[in-house]
Structures are given as C-alpha cells and as structure tokens.
C-alpha cells in the first residue's frame, strides 16, 4: 500500500486542520470537550484549523453520517487519514497524538 506524499502532507507546515466536533447538547462532557478542544487548537494549531462544532440534537440526520456512537466525538478530516477521537479531550497528549501534531 502506497500512500501519496501529498495526501500525507508531511512537508507542508501550513496544512489546514479540518475538524468537526460532535457534542450532545450541554452535557458536562460536551461542555468540557468544547472548551478543551478550543484551548488545544489555540495553543498548538495557531490559526491553521477549521473547527466545526455540531450539536447532534440539532442535526439528527448527521448522526448516521459519521457513525456516531460515543460522544463527544472529534473527527479529523484533514490532513492525512481520518481520525476519530472520543472523549472530553482532557488527555491533551492523546488528542495531539490523534491529530498528528506530534
């Protein structure tokens, strides 16, 4: 299996992080997840990201689309492979690893 270099974006520094965070209303986990991810993005991704926060309750039809099971769920659509991170994003190290920042 060969993966094209462009797809992986190894050498580009200014790669754009496309992120989507699914939360369930204002549950404690959701609130924590939103604040955690915002902080992480600000600290580590500078302005190089596009974060969309989706309240599943508001957009039910999107629930099937992204195979929602556990919430909160952060889907990293780009760069590189799609990664899915569940939880309230309190484990910063794991979040960064999941995003491929390290």
């Amino acid at each position: 299996m060969t993966i094209a270099a462009t797809e992986l974006n190894w050498d580009e520094d200014d790669q754009l992080y496309v992120l989507r965070l699914y939360v369930a209303g204002t549950s404690p986990n959701s609130v924590r997840a939103v604040s955690n991810i915002k902080r992480i993005c600000k600290n580590h991704l500078k302005d190089n990201y596009d974060l969309e926060i989706v309240d599943v309750y508001q957009q039910l039809e999107k629930a099937g689309e992204d195979q929602l099971i556990a919430l909160p769920l952060l889907v990293k659509k780009a760069p590189g492979q799609v990664r899915r991170l569940v939880g309230d994003m309190s484990d910063e190290e794991k979040v960064l690893k999941g995003l491929g920042v390290y």
Binding site: A24, S27, G64, A70, L71, R84, V86, V95
Partner: peptide, 15 residues
C-alpha cells in the same frame, strides 16, 4: 478511535 477522556454513548441513543 482514540479515547481522550470521559465520554458516553449518547450518539447511539440519538441514532
């Protein structure tokens, strides 16, 4: 899937 803290299965419930 990377687990990054507390979560629940609300997504499943909603679906």
């Amino acid at each position: 899937i990377e687990e990054t803290g507390a979560y629940d299965l609300e997504g499943l419930f909603i679906r």
